Simulated scan of single mutants.
Amino acid sequence: MATRHQARKSVVSLLYASDLSGENQAFIQEFLEQQKIRNEQKTFALTLYDGVKANLSALDMNLQANLKEFNRLSKVELAILRLSVYELLFSDTDKAIIINEAIELGKELGNENSSKLINAVLDTIIKAKK
């Protein structure tokens, strides 16, 4: 059974793919099945993915307001940050869990500096939210 971390990692991959080539529902379902994201975790992943897509402009505005070099983000960092900011703003998940997950995703999927950048941006957003 997949974990929430694996579901989030799949969502980041789907957001990345969507950013590059557009959205394809058949691909989304097939990708989640290949990643063995099923049942409760599939529902979780689809909720996150759909939530990010539905709030994309608001998420990007929030990121642009808190990040000077928004346009220089890699597509992977952007996908991780969009997912994390969505969870910070629209879910009941503990902030520490969201930040930890984002940092781990940055380490796994990004470059050597991604996790530091992601941590700094999310910290700035949380402080601005208070």
Rank of each mutant, 00 (worst) to 15 (best):
L15G: 05
K116R: 14
S114G: 03
R82D: 13
T43G: 05
L32R: 13
T47V: 01
I97H: 09
Q64D: 10
L14G: 06
K36A: 13
I28D: 03
K53S: 00
F31D: 08
S91D: 07
S114C: 03
Q29F: 08
Y49G: 12
N62V: 12
N100K: 10
N113F: 05
I99T: 08
G22I: 12
S91A: 06
E108Y: 07
N66K: 07
A17Q: 11
E101K: 02
L105V: 08
A54N: 00
S74D: 10
N62P: 03
G106S: 04
I97W: 01
L83P: 00
S74Q: 03
I97Y: 06
Q34D: 15
L117A: 04
E69H: 08
L15F: 07
A65Q: 13
L14V: 05
L14R: 01
T47K: 04
L73M: 06
Q35C: 09
R38Q: 12
T47L: 05
Y86K: 03
N39G: 03
L109W: 02
L20S: 05
Q29W: 06
V12W: 04
Q25L: 13
D50I: 13
L15N: 04
E23Q: 02
Q35N: 09
Y16V: 02
M61W: 10
L15Q: 09
T93F: 03
K107N: 11
Q35H: 06
L32F: 08
Y49A: 11
L14A: 08
F70Y: 15
I97A: 10
I97V: 15
D19Q: 07
L83Q: 12
T43Q: 10
A26Q: 12
I98W: 06
A45G: 07
L105A: 05
R82P: 06
L46Q: 09
E112T: 12
V76D: 05
S13L: 14
A26D: 15
F31E: 07
N55M: 04
L48I: 09
F31N: 02
D19W: 09
S115Y: 14
Q34H: 14
N111H: 09
K107C: 07
A65C: 01
L67S: 04
L117V: 09
L105R: 02
